[in-house]
Nucleic acid binder design. Structure first.
Lengths: 203, 203
DNA sequence: TGTACATCAGTGAACGCGCGTTCACTGATGTAC
DNA sequence: TGTACATCAGTGAACGCGCGTTCACTGATGTAC
């Protein structure tokens, strides 16, 4: 993903020195913990996640993370926020330069599912609202921005806030992604998704 | 849900006496642990789930559950299996007596989402494949049977095993259910689901 | 119908573990003068 | 340019907790004869 974008986002201080090892002040601990946490999630899932292990991987004492994130929820929220930022960027990139809405929608659908498959632990986390601090402004901003990008490709049926076209497109793509992660469509090829997206009537 | 069906399924011995309290042998511990576990999940989610707490609620020593389920994965798998059995029964009941496929599909879609909303903790669990023993024959049977019921309402496009009509219907309904549980469609009314289902073109 | 005995279900105390969090602390940084 | 000092980031030992699991055990059940 876009590392530059994210290190700017989460570590607004000057870039940490190459070798932060052995120094008393880590220099980029916040970003390092997010990275360690993301890797830990990928390896062991949410069940195997712990603040202590993140600290261990970042080469720092068990009490250090509290300084930046308070508790596990805080760190998980930051990881999810980074996930949504990358997710939104992927959707944006997928549709950039494409002209018609329906073409942009298909392209975003593919990017949506591809992101879920390539980042399954993070994608899972992004939707586990019970373990996140949903009020966190950074999380909210990143999530809302990603959703807005997706929905910008759906024709507005003029039904106001609750738009069945948007919900149908979102549900179809989101459901496909979930089924691709959770079993039933685990090994479906990308072309199959295209066939599925064709079943969507959005006018 | 259908308690008779499930106690038969999970507790093939003669029905436990009304007052199993105080007796050395519980009489229906297996079923009682499944019930306690389901309630615990509903109250605290998977994060707050523990074998010890299930035992406590069933009024039994911490070591007792191991006798029936081996470990937490075993009990969770049994809970998920019961969930799939109830889920399949709900889908079946929803479409019973309806004539055309498209009508049956809509009815099942509504039942699918209604089940997810009414049993969110169990529905979540049913899809958390990482914490379940997916090889468990009872789980497999219950899940496959529920899916078969759902897909029986989808026109077969003659494309063999990987049927885009089936995948589209399933993804749309499943995605809607997830979005209804996880935030974006949390308080959408049932009629909105109908409008969304209309966007499905399945021929 | 009665008795012996194998089998089964559940006990309860004990264990070791990794966890989150606390606490008084210390080393580094950066700013004011 | 130099020094004093406040602030900040991270230490590391300690705590109490609930967990899963083990273990030798015991009470109830049901079957063979």
């Amino acid at each position: 993903m876009n590392d530059d974008l994210n290190s700017v986002k989460f570590n607004p201080e000057p870039a940490p020195e190459e070798s932060a090892k052995g120094r008393y002040h880590h220099g980029g601990l916040r970003a390092a913990l997010i990275e360690a946490g993301a890797q830990l999630l990928a390896e062991r899932g949410l069940e195997g996640f712990s603040l202590r292990e993140c600290a261990r991987r970042a080469g720092v004492s068990p009490a250090a993370p509290a300084h930046h994130f308070g508790d596990a929820r805080g760190l998980l929220t930051a990881i999810a926020a980074r996930g949504f930022a990358e997710f939104g960027a992927a959707l944006e990139a997928a549709q950039a330069g494409l002209s018609t809405r329906s073409i942009r929608l298909r392209a975003q659908g593919r990017a949506y599912v591809r992101f879920a498959r390539a980042n399954r632990a993070i994608f899972d986390l992004m939707w586990r609202s019970a373990v996140l601090n949903q009020a966190d402004p950074e999380l909210r901003r990143a999530a809302d921005s990603a959703f807005a990008t997706l929905l910008s490709a759906v024709p507005d049926s003029g039904q106001g806030k609750r738009n069945p076209n948007a919900a149908a497109a979102w549900a179809l793509v989101h459901g496909y992604a979930r089924l691709a992660l959770d079993g039933p469509l685990e090994d479906a090829p990308e072309t199959f998704l295209d066939q599925v997206l064709e079943r969507l009537t959005v006018s």
